[in-house]
């Protein structure tokens, strides 16, 4: 290209050419927006919460003033908090049961739609599966109160059928929280499972059959290991929000369904003040560390079963 042609180029083309030529510039232009966004809205509040948890802010009338100190006071107070370990245990229990329940519910459906269904109906079937989750989360959760109520849909149905004499008490129990969590998070399990099962090569199953594997063995040795990336992804997608869930235990649970999430919520909203924010932040950080450790272990354990590439 001649110098003249270079000169005649419009200004914005010149800029674009410069960007295309520079690798560093490309990285900055493409990555910067998301990085800056995350830095402002995730990383800085994270640092602030960390500082609160270490008691680095002192309340002076209505404002908080930075004090250069590191104190573990709020962590100690959190661990001294009555019922804290039961609460943590309960959060993990809810999350793990929710993961198992959504997996057991989603896998057969994802298997059927991804594998057996005529390809022309697949996208419709997936859509039908996902439509309930278009409804606002809060609305969806709140409506479950009416379904699980003593005189709600489930109890009325069971009593009409004569299966029970007295209504089953759902609201305020672990069962209600788990049912609603499984319902709210099922699509997060279903979609990644469907993704891997839909792509799984059917010829592999036929190959297993020609090698003497029964349908049951084929499932165990071929289908299941090859769908484990979907199981891992789905489990993490459900587990992470489930372990920190606070709205569902508050709406359909009761005094006996306090979770780490509701606890953090009440520290920030009900207790408030220097101590409330400090202990709440400490709880939040412990929660993040737990999730990181558990996710890492999970991927290690399940991922070791299947080695790709």
């Amino acid at each position: 290209m001649s110098r003249l042609e270079e000169e005649r180029k419009p200004f914005h083309i010149k800029i674009l050419d410069r960007i295309r030529a520079s690798k560093l510039l490309k990285i900055i232009v493409l990555l910067a927006p998301a990085s800056i966004f995350l830095a402002i809205f995730f990383f800085s509040p994270f640092i602030i919460a960390l500082m609160y948890s270490f008691n680095m802010f002192k309340q002076v009338v209505y404002t908080y003033v930075f004090v250069p100190r590191i104190s573990l006071e709020y962590y100690i107070r959190l661990l001294d908090f009555p019922g804290i370990f039961v609460t943590m245990q309960r959060s993990f229990y809810y999350a793990i049961v929710t993961v198992i329940l959504t997996l057991l519910l989603s896998y057969p459906a994802a298997y059927y739609i991804g594998f057996k269904l005529d390809p022309k109906y697949k996208s419709t079937a997936v859509l039908l599966f996902i439509i309930p989750f278009w409804v606002n989360f809060l609305l969806r959760t709140y409506s479950m109160k009416f379904v699980l109520h003593d005189e709600g849909l489930v109890n009325t149905l069971l009593m009409t059928l004569g299966l029970i004499k007295e209504p089953i008490r759902f609201l305020g129990t672990d069962l209600a929280v788990i049912i609603v969590m499984a319902y709210d998070y099922m699509f997060l399990m279903f979609l990644p499972l469907y993704g891997v099962l839909e792509k799984l090569d059917k010829e592999l199953l036929e190959a297993a059959a020609t090698l003497g594997a029964s349908p049951y063995k084929t499932f165990l040795k071929v289908t299941l290991p090859l769908s484990s990336p979907g199981i891992i992804a789905g489990s993490l997608l459900v587990f992470i929000p489930a372990v920190g869930e606070f709205i569902i235990p508050m709406l359909v649970g009761g005094v006996n369904t306090t979770t780490l999430g509701t606890l953090i919520y009440s520290f920030f909203i009900t207790v408030r003040g220097e101590a409330g924010w400090g202990i709440g932040s400490a709880a939040g950080l412990i929660y993040i560390i737990f999730i990181m450790v558990l996710s890492y272990l999970y991927i290690k354990l399940v991922g070791a079963e299947v080695q790709f590439g």
């Binding site: 036929e206 090698l211 084929t218 090859l226 790709f308």
Partner: peptide, 20 residues
């Protein structure tokens, strides 16, 4: 008799080797 009980071997068009 189902496939897995027949004493046959098969080589598939796309080979169908187990990737895992």
């Amino acid at each position: 008799i189902p496939t897995h009980k027949r004493n046959i071997g098969m080589v598939f068009q796309h080979l169908a080797l187990f990737p895992h």
